[in-house]
Nucleic acid binder design. Structure first.
Length: 472
RNA sequence: GGCGACGUAGCCAAGUGGUAAGGCGGGGGUCUGCAAAACCCCUAUUCAGCGGUUCGAAUCCGCUCGUCGCCUCCA
């Protein structure tokens, strides 16, 4: 397998140190509902994790929650809800979103507020080694003590100082020194520390948690491209300075960012579409397939037109997925070449677009085989296995169309519908086509379409199969 | 200003030296009472523009135009 590494800027051979892959992905700061950009990132890393497992690795996957920070404090103060409760509410929402998107839970979800002792231990070590210093209850990392600082984001201290936006001042030795520990301000949540009451800075949590749960060297560390600098750069500086072990991370992975119109989707700008909103319009499968239809390092732009198009594509995969396997003595179709294409694509830096292309081709092969009466069982199993690696469920009845709550002359429409299907079938047998079509027209009021096969009548709502009625 | 990414058909999107995957849409056809679903065929002589290297470039180099990201909280 080859994986692109942000640190080296090129694809490198992937081989974990042992059969368990140590994987860390930066999680969210739970102060607002998660948006589609988060969904994109976590769908991507879930798929990477899933593929590694498919390839026979065990994966220990750690994802943090930054459950204390400036914005959480600000929101808590506005709403009068304690920071812990505020964060807890959004964490629960986050899990609900992730579950709906069929994103497998991480092995452990450590929270910043529960890992303070480990952070203090790391900060103390950094001070002892001369990599950090305390000023008035704050502790800062001394960037000039790390000759490698800037290696991940490919910049230099001089280059960054040339930028116009560096603020000079405060008590820092160097403008780019960053906070490891922040002295408490009145009314803020605080924890005891050797430097007085305060709270951790943003970057230190990830160093502390990864060290605690995965050790000194991680195989994979992931996150959005917007985390490359300063967050991940600072993590490297802290971790390598503390442990003296390099590399801290063997493969740095960064996903491209989601755009909404002209701008990045971002909580702080308010330009966003929440995951819940998106899920009210599109199926989880469509959202996953949409995200995975472009390479994970490329940016994407949100578009209703494209998501609607993806929904149609999902429908084709779903129709194939839900074919009945009939026992057949006929020749079986061979799915091996499609499986190989899938693996070849995914082995090359997780080439999901080509992998998906192989799955669409396999779907066509299966449908064709099904039409020709060939044995499709094995190929269908391969199809289900590989779509499953991408986290697609492709199941039938997970929707509740308006008809489910409708009434016909006082009776629930669902009850009436079955009799209509029977009525229409009898009219068709009698070749009374006009009257049969009149019955079919009744379904239009709920956007239901009918599909006749030799054995059953299928009712679809917006392309999705909703009910199947066996023909007598 | 510094660093980086990108610009491929109506839309989305692969392809990084050997002659353009896949999806959506569109057109035609098969099947069907008609549909639906499925299947078959067609839909970029061309890869932002201009030069250059090469037997050969969407792929390498240079310049121009355009879009976006990071440099500040951010997946």
């Amino acid at each position: 397998m080859k994986i692109y590494n942000t640190l080296s800027g090129r694809k490198e051979d992937f081989a974990p140190r042992n059969d368990t892959v140590k994987m860390y992905v930066c999680g969210v700061t739970p102060y607002a509902p998660s948006h589609l950009g988060h969904a994109m990132s976590y769908i991507i890393f879930d798929t990477i994790r899933s593929y590694l497992e498919f390839r026979g690795y065990k994966v220990k996957y750690i994802q943090n929650f930054t459950d204390i920070d400036d914005k959480i404090i600000a929101r808590a103060n506005e709403s009068g809800i304690p920071t812990h409760d505020l964060a807890q509410g959004f964490i629960e929402q986050y899990f609900a979103n992730m579950d709906t998107l069929n994103i497998k839970r991480a092995t452990i979800y450590p929270r910043a507020t529960e890992e303070i002792p480990k952070m203090i231990e790391v900060i103390e070590g950094l001070i002892q080694k001369g990599h950090a210093y305390e000023v008035g209850g704050d502790v800062y990392f001394r960037v000039q003590s790390d000759p490698d600082y800037g290696k991940l984001s490919h910049r230099t201290l001089d280059g960054m100082m040339a930028g116009a936006r560096v603020e000079i001042g405060e008590a820092k030795e160097h403008p780019l020194d960053f906070a490891l520990w922040k002295a408490a301000k009145p009314g803020e949540p605080q924890w005891h520390s050797p430097w007085g009451p305060g709270r951790p800075g943003w970057h230190i949590e990830c160093s502390a948690m990864s060290l605690k749960y995965l050790g000194e060297t991680l195989d994979i560390h992931g996150g959005g491209q917007d985390l490359t600098f300063p967050h991940h750069e600072n993590e490297i500086a802290q971790s390598e300075s503390f442990t003296g072990v390099k590399p801290f991370v063997r493969h740095w992975l960064h996903n491209g960012l989601l755009q909404l119109g002209e701008e990045k989707m971002s909580k702080s700008t308010g330009k966003l579409i929440t995951i819940s909103e998106a899920l009210s319009k599109y199926s989880p499968d469509a959202l996953r397939l949409w995200v995975l239809s472009s390479h994970y390092r490329s940016p994407m732009t949100y578009s209703d037109e494209n998501l609607a198009a993806t929904e149609k594509g999902v429908e084709r995969l779903r129709n194939t997925n839900n074919l009945d396997i009939k026992e057949s003595a006929a020749t079986a179709i061979d799915s091996q070449t499609y499986r190989e294409r899938f693996i070849e694509a995914m082995d090359d830096d997780f080439g999901t677009p080509q992998a998906i292309a192989a799955l669409f081709d396999l779907a066509r092969e299966i449908n064709r085989g099904n039409d020709e009466g060939l044995h499709i069982g094995e190929a269908l199993n391969t199809f289900r296995e590989l779509t499953g690696v991408l986290g697609l469920k492709l199941s039938d009845v997970t929707i509740s169309p308006p008809v489910a709550e409708a009434f016909v002359e006082g009776l629930p429409a669902e009850v009436v519908i079955e009799s209509w299907v029977k009525e229409r079938e009898e009219l068709r047998k009698a070749k009374q086509w006009n009257r049969a079509d009149d019955v079919r027209d009744r379904f239009k009021q709920w956007d239901l379409t009918l599909e006749d096969t030799s054995q059953e009548t299928i009712l679809r709502y917006k392309g999705r199969i909703w009910r199947r009625y066996k023909k007598p």
